[in-house]
Simulated scan of single mutants.
Amino acid sequence: MALHPEIARIVASLPAPPPGPIDPAVLRAGEEATVPPPEERLPLHAVEDVTAQTAAGDVPVRIYTPVEADSYGVLVYFHGGAFFLGSLDTHDHVARSLARETGLRVVSVGFRRAPEAAFPAGLEDCYGVVRWVAENGQLLGWDGKTLAIAGDSSGGTFVAAVAAMAHDEGFEHITHQVLFYPSLDLDFDVDRYASLRENAEGYGLETAGLKPFNAFYLDSGADPADPRVSPIKREDLTGLPPALVVTAEHDPLRDEGELYAERLRAAGVAATVSRYAGANHGFVQNFSWIPEYHRVFEETAEFLRG
């Protein structure tokens, strides 16, 4: 189907990017300026900023508690932003909706970003926080059962990479992985996936923008041939946790996400693909106020309960 009319209207109104090199500070400031004040955000039982002490160092995290309970399943969330954008604040509304709909205690990770932090700093922060949750289960009220990881876009890259790292190190506590329109192959050859050409222009994220927006990460030492950077290049996907892969019809990255789920299934991993018609890349962050796209949080809850 065509791009959803509300999304199409907003995409058409976006200004052209400024000429010259991308300035991370300017783009970050623009993102932060759109964050609503705390009193206008989805209310939950509790939201708390703490520091997770991990093998990678101290990592800021924000813990979202949906309701008062004796114990909780935990979902660790990695925000998107091409590895240099996004923050606890810009994705606060996503974490709140995940907590409200799933009933899990959500731990959102303020990982280090490129270009200030070279690869694999951000990835190590994410993995470190997952292990911190398991090691501090009593403090966090973890029920010892559900420990899910979720992320959008580049956060989805981290989800796949963390799941693989955990498996390789014998850390078997991760029960589910949720990837919202993940970036899984940072080799941006336009002939690699049909969606890179089919959705190349006019849908927000454009194929021509993939290289420059990911350049800060790649230039920091992230090699696209490394499965930690491009998880779809991992040869052996057996033994990974069950996956929900959410894709958007009008997303250049659509096909790599769907291929990854297909490869998981071929390796014996339970993997579900859910393609959202009329949606574009970033719809979970940008357009979940549209009822048919808010459904993604309900679907995530159903997957985690199942």
Rank of each mutant, 00 (worst) to 15 (best):
D92P: 02
S71Y: 00
E299V: 10
L42A: 07
T238D: 07
L264P: 03
V130C: 13
Y276I: 07
V59C: 06
F84P: 03
A266Q: 15
V26S: 09
G278V: 02
R265S: 14
Y276R: 02
F303K: 09
V133F: 08
A12W: 13
A270V: 13
V162E: 03
S274Y: 08
R9L: 15
F111C: 12
G155H: 04
S183K: 05
H167T: 08
G144M: 07
E299C: 06
S183M: 12
Y127L: 14
L98K: 01
R228N: 08
L123Y: 14
S195T: 05
A25W: 01
V61K: 01
F111L: 12
W132Y: 12
R254K: 14
I63H: 00
Y64G: 00
P43N: 04
E101H: 15
D185N: 13
D185K: 04
P38S: 10
L244D: 03
T175F: 02
G30K: 06
E101S: 14
A270S: 14
C126I: 13
R295C: 08
S13Q: 15
Y293I: 10
G103A: 08
R28D: 10
D236E: 13
E31A: 12
Y276Q: 04
L139V: 14
K233C: 07
S153P: 05
P36E: 08
L210V: 07
P115M: 11
R265Y: 10
D152W: 01
A56Q: 02
T300S: 01
P43H: 03
G209Q: 14
E169V: 02
E292M: 12
D49K: 04
M1I: 09
H250I: 11
D58I: 03
A99L: 03
A266Y: 11
A117D: 14
V229S: 04
F287P: 08
P18M: 11
L14A: 15
D125I: 07
G155M: 06
D251E: 07
S153Q: 05
V190F: 03
A148F: 01
H281G: 11
F297Y: 15
T207K: 01
P115G: 11
I7F: 10
L139F: 13
S220R: 05
P5H: 13
V178L: 08
I290S: 06
Q285W: 08
T102C: 00
D125W: 07
R197T: 14
L264F: 08
G110C: 08
R9D: 15
G30C: 09
A16C: 12
E32Q: 12
K211M: 11
F216E: 03
S153D: 11
Y72C: 01
P182L: 11
E39W: 04
H4A: 12
L253Q: 07
G221K: 02
S153F: 03
A121Y: 14
E262Y: 06
A12S: 15
E40V: 09
E201W: 02
I22A: 07
H167F: 02
A25E: 13
H173P: 00
G80A: 05
D251C: 08
V190Y: 02
L259N: 13
A279E: 04
N280V: 14
R263C: 06
A52H: 06
D226N: 12
L104E: 00
G57M: 04
L123H: 15
F180A: 11
F119H: 15
E256N: 10
Y293S: 06
G170I: 03
G282D: 05
V94K: 00
R112W: 10
S108P: 03
V76A: 00
L196I: 01
Y181D: 09
G122C: 13
F283G: 07
A82N: 04
